[in-house]
Nucleic acid binder design. Structure first.
Length: 270
DNA sequence: CTTATCCCCTGCCGGC
DNA sequence: TGCCGGCAGGGGATAA
């Protein structure tokens, strides 16, 4: 489920938990996660090592360890890292445990099991195909208006699908793209190449502004996603079909673009 | 190259 | 209560 804002918050939590903290054991028996790698190799690479840094690239988490290895993780739809007591019962969907020398446990929980993880020599991270193909990070290197114009020029693809294409820009997902287009008053199904210069300029300004807002807004809640108990919907449109548009009061509609649920205001984004 | 569609996997929710 | 379709904040493979 997570997009850039949630992954950024996950990175900040992991940084607190791991940097300067020694891992004693790496435990997993999840063949889908290992994809041919060996749990023993993961353990050998990380056990006994302190975390040195935690980075984020688009929606990927990178945890660098002393000894020269990096744990790369993608949370996909349902992944999250939890810090638990070392003797707590494993939560449903637990796929990987990092035991720490203070007795606690970092658990990679992922109920749908779509998440991915790698343990690589740190220099090899750059050539991991999943990372190498990413476009510029929308928080660290937000596109200028001319850069966005170059990306959209001549494209018949909807602007929403383009914003979610990680090879062009990275970090925006289904919710971010929809919320940014609402703020910019642009219809999500508009062919990217047909946007006006003024619309492009608004988008360029709103992308980093929205991400900073979302990180701040979501940092005030536990890392709980919509649909879970106690979840708080901080979004303007997402998940609010039929509710009044916060700007004009018109009923929010839902459609499907690029296979993803898409919420929009037919009046503001007409 | 571009774009759309299907698929991976599991759980929850609403309707009948 | 039980079953079933729809839905889920990801991205990769494949096809046209």
């Amino acid at each position: 489920m997570p997009e850039l804002p949630e992954v950024e918050l996950a990175a900040r939590r992991l940084r607190e938990w791991l940097v300067g903290c020694r891992v004693t054991h790496v435990e997993t028996d999840d063949a889908l996660l290992l994809r041919g790698a060996s749990a023993a190799d993961w353990h050998a690479a990380l056990a006994g090592r302190c975390g040195r840094a935690v980075r984020r690239r688009a929606k990927y988490l990178l945890a660098d360890f002393e000894g020269g290895h990096t744990l790369v993780a993608h949370l996909r739809m349902t992944g999250r890292f939890l810090r638990e007591s070392g003797d707590a019962a494993p939560p449903p969907g637990a796929r990987l445990f990092l035991r720490l020398e203070d007795g606690s446990r970092l658990t990679f929980q992922d109920r749908r099991r779509l998440g991915q993880a790698w343990v690589l020599p740190t220099p090899a991270v750059e050539s991991l195909p999943q990372l190498a193909s990413l476009g510029p990070d929308t928080l660290e290197e937000p596109p200028s208006a001319p850069a966005l114009m170059a990306l959209t020029c001549g494209r018949r693809q909807s602007i929403k699908a383009l914003l979610m294409d990680q090879r062009r820009l990275s970090g925006l997902g289904n919710i971010c793209a929809g919320e940014i287009l609402f703020r910019a008053r642009i219809a999500p199904e508009m062919p990217a190449g047909q946007l006006s210069e003024a619309e492009i300029a608004r988008l360029a300004e709103l992308i980093p502004e929205y991400l900073r807002w979302a990180i701040e807004a979501q940092s005030r809640h536990d890392p709980v996603y919509l649909g879970e108990r106690g979840a708080v919907n901080v979004f303007s449109l997402y998940g609010r079909r039929g509710e009044p548009c916060p700007a004009c009061g018109e009923a929010i509609r839902r459609t499907v673009i690029a296979g993803r649920g898409t919420y929009y205001c037919p009046r503001c984004q007409g």
